[in-house]
């Protein structure tokens, strides 16, 4: 019981503190891929903490090795009231919470995947019908007065640029924009964003998930900027970004979803790129993330095994 409460406290602390500590995206932007990993690790760690706590509450172990292995039997026993009434209520609450979470996640995942697949297929078809290949590139050009560029991700991946964007951008700028979208495609960035979209849909009131979603969306843009900057001038990409931002702000849909802060972060980063993390630092950070993810599981296992170990003859 104590171990379960500690795990719940751990998860709550993580969900409260992480969004505050990681508020400024510029910090994670220095190593954007690692930044995405940070957010996924934080979310996984908090979720595993709650899951482990639920498992502990359901399977209150008698202090013997044999019973540890029989999670299912313990679960049934707990529900039949083999343990004390408080433990039973806690076990019921844990089962109920886990079920609700699982159902919400399943529905959100289904809705997100179905809606994106449908929408992306329709986009790909429309663009395929109304667009034409931009000579010398793998992009499709469609006629429109608003300068824009986007990737239709997934199986029917298509890079789309509008005719207004082709007119507004110089050759090198346009090439950098196309490289940016290609970076999204080869990095499978839509999957990273979709994952967070599923989580925020399943738990719309979580502030941590909202922030994680927003920052992952920004970090994949930065990843794509970096991918484009390998072969293209950062300044060209920055100029293209500003030109396209002006076009987007002038179009009537302007105020729908303001992401001006994201664009500002990207422009600043393109103009004065931060020193990349040293390899050693990045490796240490990645290892720490691994620890973060397994920590709640280790805690739960230790809490379960420890009393039994104490009972072993010759130990404790």
């Amino acid at each position: 019981m104590t171990a379960a409460l500690i795990l719940i406290a751990y998860s709550l602390a993580l969900t409260t503190l992480a969004p505050r500590i990681l508020r400024d995206p510029a910090r994670l932007a220095r190593a954007p891929r690692l930044g995405v990993a940070v957010w996924y690790s934080v979310v996984a760690s908090a979720a595993l903490g709650l899951a482990a706590a639920a498992a502990l509450l359901v399977a209150t172990p008698e202090h013997s090795w044999e019973k540890l292995c029989h999670l299912v039997r313990l679960c049934v026993e707990a529900l039949q009231g083999a343990h004390d009434w408080f433990g039973m209520i806690a076990a019921l609450a844990a089962v109920a919470g886990a079920t609700v979470a699982a159902v919400r996640l399943t529905i959100a995942a289904y809705r997100t995947v179905a809606a994106s697949a449908r929408g992306r297929l329709r986009q790909a078809r429309l663009v395929g019908r109304a667009g034409r290949r931009l000579p010398g590139t793998d992009a499709t050009i469609v006629d429109d007065q608003v300068a824009a560029a986007y990737l239709v991700p997934g199986r029917h991946a298509t890079i789309v640029v509008t005719s207004a964007a082709v007119d507004a951008l110089s050759g090198p700028e346009l090439a950098a924009v196309i490289a940016h979208e290609r970076g999204h495609h080869s990095g499978r960035h839509h999957l990273l964003v979709d994952g967070m979209r599923v989580l925020t849909r399943a738990f719309p009131r979580s502030r941590m998930l909202a922030r994680a979603h927003g920052q992952v969306a920004l970090l994949v843009e930065i990843c794509a900027d970096d991918a484009a900057a390998v072969r293209h001038d950062r300044l060209d990409l920055a100029r293209a970004l500003v030109t396209m931002a002006e076009a987007a702000s002038a179009s009537p849909a302007g105020a729908l979803a303001a992401t001006g802060g994201d664009a500002a972060t990207r422009v600043r980063r393109l103009l004065t790129p931060p020193r990349p993390l040293r390899r050693g630092t990045a490796l240490v950070a990645a290892a720490l993330l691994g620890v973060l993810v397994v920590a709640p599981v280790v805690m739960a296992v230790v809490a379960t095994v420890w009393p039994a170990l104490m009972d072993c003859p010759g130990l404790g």
């Binding site: 809606a115 994106s116 929408g119 992306r120 329709r122 986009q123 824009a148 560029a149 986007y150 990737l151 239709v152 991700p153 924009v177 940016h180 979208e181 999204h184 960035h189 839509h190 964003v193 979709d194 979209r197 994949v220 794509a224 293209a240 970004l241 396209m244 931002a245 002006e246 987007a248 702000s249 002038a250 849909a253 302007g254 105020a255 729908l256 979803a257 303001a258 992401t259 001006g260 994201d262 664009a263």
Partner: peptide, 12 residues
């Protein structure tokens, strides 16, 4: 539809 747009919406 969740496309990856080069730049999102913003104010003038």
């Amino acid at each position: 539809v969740a496309l990856l747009k080069f730049v999102g919406q913003m104010s003038p």
